[in-house]
Each structure stands twice: as C-alpha cells, then as structure tokens.
C-alpha cells in the first residue's frame, strides 16, 4: 500500500502565507529558552562587548524557529483533543505555517534533520515572520517498513524584512 497517494502529492509545492510570530523576541522567553538549552551566553542576556556588532542582546540562533506559537484566542488543541487518545500533543503546530497533511495525519511524526543557513540573529524586541513551502514528499522503503520523508523549506525574516535564516527540514512520517 503506497503512502504517497495522489491526494498527498497535491501538497508538494504548496506555499504558506507570510505568518508573523504572535510575540516579538521577549527577554523572558529568551531567558527560559537559553536556560532550557543550557547555554546561558551573555550574548543572549544584555548589552555586552560581544553583541555590540549585532546591535545588542540577541536570541539564540535557532530561537526564531520556535516563535510560532498559539496566539491569544486561537483554538487550544490540548483542550479540544483532551479525550482523543490518538492526539500526539502536536496537532498542526509542526507544519511551519503550512496546512496539515490531512491524508497522513494519523501517521507518527519524527524529526529527520535539517539544513540551516544563518544570516542574522533576531534581536530582543524584534518581530519575526516566516514563509514556508512543501518542497518535496517522497516515500522510501526502510528496514522498519515504508516511510514518508516530507521536506519543508522555510525563510525567517525580521520586521524590516531582513533575512535571518533559511531552514530545510525533513520530517519522517510512518
């Protein structure tokens, strides 16, 4: 049974609208993030000699990728699916602004890896926006059975439309 159906192929090339993160880069959010990744670099905390050339305190390099959270008033998947034993806790939040892949929404999701290019840090106070596309979806036969490799390309920019980073993610669905 092929996982890569015609209905699924229609998603390849699909591009998201520009999505703006619900909050700007907040110092408290940066602190919790830096503590969670166990990298309390002064770059991330306050003005210091090493972040002068970046224009002041910045967020950790990958922080922009985690800024796209549930906005005030947006539906709460945790409550909506509280009685759904199949709910994996993620909902559609892993799709980087793209619609959920409905034909395979029942399949488990694993993070396959990424290729990332960095151009700027996101500074404290800046807004961040993204735009994504489903670059490819391929099926591969593995020792654990057939799996789908979903490639998503995303560009992150700040409020001045300056490029922060480009990410090419591979998500494994099985």
């Amino acid at each position: 049974m092929a996982l890569l159906t015609e209905a699924l192929k229609k998603y390849i090339g699909m591009q998201s609208e520009t999505e703006i993160a619900c909050d700007p880069v907040e110092r408290g959010a940066v602190r919790r993030y830096a503590q969670a990744i166990m990298d309390e670099d002064p770059l991330f905390a306050e003005d210091c000699p090493n972040n002068a050339r970046f224009g002041g305190p910045v967020a950790p390099p990958l922080f922009p990728t985690h800024m796209f959270r549930r906005a005030f008033g947006a539906p709460d998947p945790i409550q909506l699916r509280a009685r759904d034993a199949e709910f994996d806790g993620l909902g559609a939040t892993s799709a980087q602004g793209l619609p959920e892949l409905v034909p395979i929404k029942h399949l488990a999701l694993l993070n396959g890896g990424s290729e990332i290019e960095f151009f700027r840090y996101a500074r404290h106070g800046e807004t961040v926006r993204l735009r994504s596309r489903y670059a490819d979806i391929v099926e591969k036969e593995t020792s654990k059975g057939p799996m789908l490799f979903v490639t998503i390309e995303t560009e992150y920019r700040n409020g001045a439309d300056e490029l922060l980073m480009k990410v090419r993610r591979t998500l494994i669905r099985r």
């Binding site: 990298d39 950790p60 990958l62 990424s114």
Partner: peptide, 29 residues
Amino acid sequence: GSLKQQFILQLLKDWVGPAGWVWKVSFQF
C-alpha cells in the same frame, strides 16, 4: 531532536567566537 540541534549550535557558536559566524549547519537524526 530540537534540543540536540541546540547543542550543535552551541558547540559551533562558541568555537567560532565573537568575530566569526556559523553560516551553514546540516544534520540528520
């Protein structure tokens, strides 16, 4: 995986130091 990639970035960022730049990173889980 999202935590492991942070560790990779920390290794590289700290190694290049304040005057360098981590341009490209790729990894597979």
